[in-house]
Structures are given as C-alpha cells and as structure tokens.
Design a protein around this nucleic acid. Sequence first.
DNA 1: CCTACCGATCGGTAGG
DNA 2: CCTACCGATCGGTAGG
Lengths: 217, 217
Amino acid sequence: MAEPETEHPTGQASEPGPRRGRPGHDQETVLRRAVDLFNRQGYDATSMGDLARELGFTKSAIYHHVPSKAHLLAEALDEALDELTAVVEEAVTHADGLSAEERLRHTVRRSVEVLVAHQPAVTLLLRVRGNSDVELAAQRRRRELDARLADLVRAAVAEGSLRDDVDPDVVSRLLFGMVNSLVEWYRPGGSVDAAVLSDAVATIAFDGLTRPAPHQS
Amino acid sequence: MAEPETEHPTGQASEPGPRRGRPGHDQETVLRRAVDLFNRQGYDATSMGDLARELGFTKSAIYHHVPSKAHLLAEALDEALDELTAVVEEAVTHADGLSAEERLRHTVRRSVEVLVAHQPAVTLLLRVRGNSDVELAAQRRRRELDARLADLVRAAVAEGSLRDDVDPDVVSRLLFGMVNSLVEWYRPGGSVDAAVLSDAVATIAFDGLTRPAPHQS
DNA sequence: CCTACCGATCGGTAGG
DNA sequence: CCTACCGATCGGTAGG
C-alpha cells in the first residue's frame, strides 16, 4: 500500500517508465543478460535465481525491473520477429522492377545481417518449443514468416531463375536452414566479418560449393 | 544385501537383461517415448511425471525400467553420436582411390540418411546446451566430429574441387548447418522421400540454387 | 519368491 | 533493493 509499485500482471506492463535504480541495472540490462543466460542454458533450465546471481543482486530485485520470466522471453522473441518481419516486408514492398531472384538474394543478405545484429534474440526464437502462450504466439508469427519466404522462393522458381528439379518448399527450408544455422556459431566481434559472411552465404547458396570452371579453358 | 538388485549408478546400467514385464513396456519403449517428449517440450521442461502420463503408468514405475532421467538422455545422445561417428569413420577408412570431394559428397549423403533414420536422437543432440555432465560429454564428442568434418572440407578445397574464395571453416559450418537443419522439419513418412531429400541436399549444396545454364545456347 | 507396479512422500528448489 | 516466505512441483525412493 505504502510503496508506489508498478502493476505487472504477467505479460503486460510494457511502459518503460522513467529511469530509476542504479545505472546499468535497468530493464535493458536485465533483458540482455537474461537472453544471454537463456541461450547458454536454455530458457527452462535458467532460473530467476541464476539471473539474479549473474546480475549481482537478489532474485526478488529482478521483479522491480521486469514483471515476469515470461515477459523477458516475450520481449526478446518480439525483437527477433519484428526485425525478420521487416526483412520480408522489404522484399515485398520494394518490389519495384526487381526480379524474384533479386528479391530473394536481397532477403538472404538482409536475413544474415539481422541474424548477426540480433543474434541472441534470433537464437532464442529458433529454439522456441511452444511450451507456453508466449512461445506458441512466437511460433505462429514464425510460421507466417516461413510461409512468405517460401512464396518468394516459389516465385523465383516460377520466373525461371532457380532450379526446378527440387521441390521449392524443400529449397526454401534448406536455404533458410543454412541461414539460420549461423546462430549456432557466429559471434559478433569474432574472426569472421559480418559483410564477408553475408557474401559467403549468398555465394554458397546460389552458386554452390563446387569450384567454378575457370572460363572453359 | 538380501535383494539381488542390478546396480545403476546414474549413467551406467547398460546391460539390457532378458525381456520381462508387459510387452511394449520395456526399456526401448520408455526411451523412445522419452526422446519424443524431450524433443517436443525440451529436456528440462519434461518431468518424469510427464513421461509417466505419456506411458500410461506411474512415475515410480519408470524407475523399474531406467535408472534416471539423465540415463535416458545419455542413451539417446550416444545413439546419435555413434551413428554420426560411423559416417565420419567411413569417409576416412574407405578412402581408397576416392577424391576428397567424393568423400565429402558421400559424407553429406550418409549424414542425411542418419538424420532421417535417427531423427529424434539427432534432434536431441543438436539441442544439447551443456547443462550437465551428460550434455558436456556429448558436446565434446560432437565438437570432435565437427572438427573432422572441417578437415574433410579443407582437404576438398586443397585438392581444388571446392571453391577457395570462402573460408573452409565457414563452408564447413554452412554446409553441415544446412544438413542439420533437416531435423527441424523432416518427418519420416511425410511427403518428402528420404532418398529424394538426400539428392536435393547434395545438389543444392554442391551446385547451388541457381538454374543451371541450358548448354550455353 | 518373483515381476511389475502403487500411493505416498522424501529433501530441495522453482517462480513469484 | 533485501529478508522472509508462499503454493507447487521437481527427480527420485521408501515400504508393501
């Protein structure tokens, strides 16, 4: 009664509110550390106690910053889904005079960029199992994205740019399976440059691993 | 002292023993159902109570068949690792007169076959987070396999079969990232035939998505 | 005396 | 931001 607590009915409480508490211990910090822990140990294997230890304060103190464990997960999944949705929207709205293949190539490159820039959030998204309402909602959004990516691939096959001897849906799954596998090993600031990686993925996906023949010769 | 109990210090107890109990309720059944549940919900999110409900008997009854939850995980991870190790061994021992590229192509095809034939076990392996001794041991074995696959790719690049304009380690990660992504969607008995899939993966990986030019014309 | 279980509960720890 | 707790459930085991 005495304390002006912000209400937090599990899943709501989206207003950031004014900065408060010690600097570096705000919602963003809690979220970032939480996502890192979720990725290292798995969401279910990570307790709020683990997160508290990581942050250097008590479990209860976390609930001053965030309403629930599920809220942290939801924020991260939304981040990843919003970014990936933007990529797909680009491919559709910036259609201009571009061929389907060009739009697909652009989508692959931009997807790699998003995976690199938002690696922790995207990693979490790709591991979601549907164990809660938050996870089920994220899975639905992700399936929608996958369907639109498959449409892009089908368009590129129909236009004659991509090989038609493999089922377009299989092509789509393998292509974005390769792209998504980046989250398993790519670490920002590592030995592989992001732009170089984006090139490598596009090259391998579209042109294959086999050494190109050196001008007939 | 009086009772001749089989010992099972968490992680051992590998002897199958003679068939006993009601048919369909043996160790193999428990393991299969457990792995399915682990994949659907995640290992940590699955309780032995969940597994008991799934099997139609009580939680305690499970411990008549298996020593621990961790043992079920270990059995499945060993299945996947043994199969994948055999694939890599083949590529090395059956070297004969084969080029590195031929050995790599064979490895990719055989890997797809193993992923298809042992999808549940391999899925579990690919999701291991290192949260226990069992998981850490599996991760070590997997890293060893990845290193040997990277050696194969490097050999194919060195021999001149594969493109050298992309870092071989990146090539290796992307190639097997694509292969491994199969576990996310492939289901035995579905619309995609296993042999067709094996061809599709090899074709896309080595020759790329781009439609092959129709004889210069 | 065996197997295949059961109802109940152990000591700890989860999210809140 | 803490101490002190809650209702529930965890993996595993007791006696019968």
